[in-house]
Design a binder for these strands. Structure first.
Lengths: 189, 189
DNA sequence: ATTGTCGTTTGACAATTGTCAATTGACAAG
DNA sequence: CTTGTCAATTGACAATTGTCAAACGACAAT
């Protein structure tokens, strides 16, 4: 909970009573491994701050194969931002890769905070542009790297994360097959 | 100019006097092919709406080779959003791929508009999250597609754009070599 | 202990893409 | 018209990655 406030303060200013108000609006929720926080086709009317566990943002092709766009773990927000803002259907799934715990704001409470706390909206636009830009840069970088470079970079950039997620999901994030990932891992030991 | 207003209205509401105010703050600027709208390492204190031409967002590796993250053409905004918001150095270059014309807002005028027009900030948060999410999705998609699929998708999704940009830049956007792109083009004729 | 399931590894081979150098083509400058 | 420059193409070959099926390992249920 303190982590949530600490994180928000990185993007803007909040006084003590504002922080208290924010905290009073959160609701602790558990999401079991394999369950979804939000689903493609449904409007995402909540935003969650991850306190425990790993989620992935993913989609499926027509044969049911899944692809991972990115992972979100402790001390970061999850939501389908465009669905949340405009109340349009989500484009993708947010799936719990491990058992997770999150602090949830409903859209209603979130909007109330926006009206009560000057700067609340600004904080979230900053978070959004900062995070999306980085996610975008990450995929764009991977596009011009070979598989081994992508994997090494993932290990260096997200220490410990590789051990918390199935290789199948990591492979689909890296844009390679599980077989390739397995071989690459062997060469790096 | 009408296009700018039309574009803004897709993301929020503005009355006539607000539209007039916005228009009064723009400044027409020409950027010649090969010149930069903003450069890595410098703070980007302006935001531009492209009325003519094509820009690319790109970066260089230590050997001077350039890589294209994405293209921005008519009726879209260009800026390094995080540099613009927080006045920190840009991470990348914005280069005119063709002779370009843009309508520019200075950071100062932009901030004034934010204070004068309720909803101005909201419009730009929406644009930012919408655009970045799409750019992110595009690279993420390419990561799991083969080279030919990426190229076909580019042709379908950005009609005419391929003819306006050097293949070298298109290849680096697609994450393939110019040789490969050339061969792929041959097979698709 | 046995079975079944699921994710991971491995092997053999094919397909894709990269590398590097040479060639061609377009086009502007002299 | 000739030359120089730069981007695009092509060829020969190498490296990377994918495909598919089989085997393996961990682990839970019986």
């Amino acid at each position: 909970m303190e982590d949530l406030i600490k994180y928000l303060l990185k993007f803007g200013q909040l006084n003590e009573s504002q922080c208290a108000l924010i905290q009073s609006k959160t609701q602790l929720k558990k999401v079991k491994k394999g369950e979804y926080f939000s689903e493609a086709g449904k409007v995402s009317r909540k935003i969650g701050y991850v306190t425990k566990g790993v989620f992935r943002i993913c989609y499926y092709n027509k044969t049911g194969e899944s692809f991972t766009r990115y992972f979100v773990y402790e001390n970061r927000f999850i939501t389908d931002i465009n669905s949340f803002i405009d109340e349009v259907p989500s484009a993708e799934y947010i799936e719990a890769v491990t058992d997770c715990e999150i602090l949830v704001f409903s859209k209603k409470d979130f909007s109330e905070l926006a009206m009560t706390i000057p700067g609340w909206s600004d904080i979230f636009s900053k978070i959004t542009s900062y995070v999306l830009e980085n996610k975008m840069r990450a995929s764009s970088n991977m596009l011009v790297q070979d598989a081994q470079t992508r994997y090494s970079h993932f290990l260096a950039h997200y220490p410990g994360l590789a051990n918390r997620i199935p290789q199948l999901m990591l492979a689909s994030y890296l844009g390679i097959t599980p077989s390739s990932l397995s071989r690459i891992r062997k060469t790096l030991i």
